[in-house]
């Protein structure tokens, strides 16, 4: 007899995405028609940062949260994406130059079947899920975001990782023509991030292609990014072009820039302060008073076992 074990966060189909959260398909098409009539040559680049102009994505909500969503206007206007500038408002202002389509995502390294994926086709064929996750930035602010994507493990498995692969390295786009912020030497470009393979294959780790019912705005890492909700936000690399399975812990951009301040693990941990500021509390965007930060950003029940026996002060 087959046994279906449901994860703790499972909810049935009938509780899928509440319609009112999204622009309905009908009004979107009407708006699209109107836009088409008004500006027959509307540039796709302009649509990349304007959230009202992004195409809708169908998905099934598989994970909710009893916390208020951060408004889309805030999610799409307050970003750390240094490739488009250091100010939080810079990505929304500057990322219109990013061309998220066509986009190729390569999966290689220690795999039996290297893949070169067309991201538009990938989005069309994947069984997209909507998951509401907390996002906690290392700077001490947080949001609650309804992401759309698939477990990263589903896509990695297609490439058949070898048994010798122990880590995953993400390489993101670094194109000076599209990203004005690359002129700044604040980090070593391209931006690289990484996970241990068990973290990458964990069911919470999402390969995201959208948020709030539509494709990702450019400033949020279009067209494809990773979301690791129990780690500080910078671990969730944006606009990924390559995923490599590797044998040794990869050197990530932030570890390279300041190894004492930004560790490879960077799990959300209120008990381990950043060398320059406390991580005990955070400000949820839209609130004025700060709230307590939760261990593993509130995902401890699902991920704490990954770090059993590890000194989290040392492996911060």
């Amino acid at each position: 007899m087959p046994i279906h074990r449901r994860p703790s966060w499972h909810i049935p189909d009938r509780e899928a995405t509440p319609e009112h959260l999204y622009i309905s398909r009908r009004s979107l098409m009407a708006a699209g028609g109107a836009a088409l009539a008004a500006t027959p040559l509307a540039s796709p680049a302009a649509a990349g940062t304007d959230v009202t102009a992004l195409s809708a994505l169908r998905s099934r909500r598989t994970r909710s949260l009893k916390e208020a969503l951060t408004p889309l206007a805030a999610v799409a206007s307050y970003n750390n994406f240094y490739e488009f500038g250091l100010d939080k408002g810079d990505p929304a202002r500057n990322a219109h130059t990013l061309r998220p389509s066509p986009w190729t995502l390569a999966i290689g390294g220690m795999v039996a079947r290297p893949l070169t994926l067309d991201v538009d086709r990938l989005i069309a064929r994947l069984p997209l899920e909507e998951r509401v996750y907390r996002l906690r930035c290392v700077e001490g602010w947080s949001m609650v975001i309804p992401w759309i994507g698939v477990p990263l493990s589903a896509v990695l498995s297609e490439a058949q990782p070898l048994g010798s692969a122990r880590f995953v390295r993400f390489t993101t786009l670094a194109d000076r023509a599209q990203m004005p912020g690359l002129a700044s030497p604040v980090l070593d470009w391209p931006y690289r991030e990484g996970l241990r393979i068990d973290e990458a294959m964990h069911p919470l780790t999402l390969l995201a292609v959208g948020l709030y019912g539509r494709v990702l705005p450019n400033q949020n890492g279009a067209p494809v990014r990773v979301v690791v909700p129990w780690k500080y936000g910078f671990k969730s690399a944006k606009s990924i072009v390559r995923i490599d399975l590797v044998g040794n812990q990869p050197l990530t951009s932030w570890v390279q820039a300041a190894p004492r301040e930004y560790g490879f693990y960077s799990n959300v941990n209120p008990n381990v302060p950043h060398p320059r500021w406390s991580q005990a509390r955070e400000r949820r965007i839209g609130e004025i008073r700060r709230r307590d930060t939760q261990m593993f950003n509130g995902y401890g029940e699902e991920v704490a076992a990954l770090y059993r026996g590890m000194d989290l002060t040392r492996f911060f």
Binding site: A73, K88, E139, W141, R283, I285
Partner: peptide, 12 residues
């Protein structure tokens, strides 16, 4: 209350 005049994080 939803104004973004001084960004989504007005305190910072």
């Amino acid at each position: 209350p939803h104004s973004l005049r001084i960004t989504a994080e007005p305190v910072a």
